[in-house]
């Protein structure tokens, strides 16, 4: 999923200050799962903002709404009936959702309420960790299903570097050395001999290096 974290309240408060009527929009997908911008978080943020302004004797009109999927025009359309009653949209979706609203409603400011972080998985309740960088040319088949691009601090395709200590990365004892994980896994799979194959320099064209990307499925595209 795409993970996100709520921005500091101070920053959100600052960004909505110029506006009187806010449409606070959550998303039912990834940000709900990572507890950053689903219906629950929308409610809590609305309440926090409300109290913040009440404290100063001001009022703010906040309309709460959570869409099925904020990165999809079909659902973003649902906001159209509210748009003429608000001054700005505060989105709790990932950057994709924010941009979809901006694209559809050209005359309304859209403000992000979360920082979009990474594509990750849930390690345990309340903990999410980065797993994929969307390089566009998956090599997980060669590395025992563990990605060195997303999970090695130096993106080494031929690791580990000289900083790997007790299975941890040199940047922090909290970070696993992904090459230790890869090696352990290759051993478990009986694929140790793979290790000495040199992985060639990566072609980053399939990733962000090639500019903004797009997928077109001819059979589906209208």
């Amino acid at each position: 999923m795409i993970t996100a974290e709520r921005k500091p309240l101070e920053e959100i408060i600052d960004s909505v200050k110029p506006f009187q009527r806010i449409l606070l929009v959550g998303c039912n997908e990834c940000v709900t799962v990572c507890a950053a911008g689903g219906r629950k978080e929308v409610g809590i943020l609305a309440s926090a903002l409300q109290m913040n302004f009440m404290k100063a004797g001001q009022t703010i009109d906040i309309k709460e709404l959570t869409l099925e999927r904020q990165c999809d025009p079909e659902y973003v359309e649902e906001l159209s009936t509210h748009m003429d009653q608000v001054d700005a949209v505060l989105s709790m979706a990932c950057g994709c959702g924010v941009q979809e609203i901006a694209r559809r409603y050209k005359d309304k400011p859209v403000l992000p309420a979360v920082n979009t972080k990474f594509m990750g998985a849930s390690e345990r309740q309340g903990v999410w960790a980065e797993r994929c960088q969307g390089c566009g040319d998956c090599l997980l088949g060669l590395t025992g299903g563990i990605c060195p691009i997303a999970r090695c601090s130096k993106r080494l395709l031929n690791g580990p570097c000289g900083g790997s200590t007790n299975g941890k990365c040199e940047i922090s004892p909290e970070v696993d050395c992904v090459w230790q994980l890869i090696w352990d896994r290759l051993k478990a799979l009986g694929m140790e001999d793979r290790y000495e194959d040199i992985m060639p320099a990566k072609n980053w064209q399939t990733g962000r290096g090639g500019g903004p990307r797009k997928i077109i499925r001819e059979d589906l595209a209208e």
């Binding site: 309440s47 409300q50 109290m51 009440m54």
Partner: peptide
């Protein structure tokens, strides 16, 4: 008791 209940009580 959820966070929203606590928030709403104060609000």
């Amino acid at each position: 008791v959820d966070a929203i209940h606590l928030m709403k009580a104060f609000e």
